[in-house]
């Protein structure tokens, strides 16, 4: 097993952990962390799975850099919304939707 493949296997596990976290955790800041875990998992798979032989493939490296920036942007927006919600309701959880 190459080290790249090992990264990819760990990446898949991190991704699944992150998705489970986003679905199951009600506390919003922790949910944002779970989303970041999920993203990191996908990035590890992207770099790890493409890593064959000794020379690294620069294309997935650049893609991951792009992905990280997008994740930073999404995290910042999510934190801003959570902070605003906290300022308005004093809670860090989503209120139940009344469904109508």
């Amino acid at each position: 097993m190459t080290s790249g493949l090992l990264f990819a296997l760990v990446g898949v596990a991190l991704f699944a952990l992150g998705v489970a976290g986003v679905v199951l955790i009600a506390q919003l800041p922790r949910r944002i962390l779970a989303f970041n875990l999920m993203g990191s998992g996908a990035f590890l798979v992207l770099v790890g799975l493409a890593q064959r032989g000794d020379l690294p493939d620069p294309v997935p490296h650049a893609m991951v850099l792009t992905g990280i920036v997008v994740a930073v942007a999404a995290t910042a927006l999510a934190l801003a919304l959570v902070r605003r919600l906290h300022a308005l309701t004093g809670r860090l959880q989503l209120p139940e939707d009344d469904g109508d």
């Binding site: 792009t66 920036v69 997008v70 930073v72 942007a73 999404a74 910042a76 927006l77 801003a80 919304l81």
Partner: peptide, 12 residues
Amino acid sequence: EIAVLLLALLGI
């Protein structure tokens, strides 16, 4: 990607 960053700032 830079557009996404600027956009997140706009959202904030």
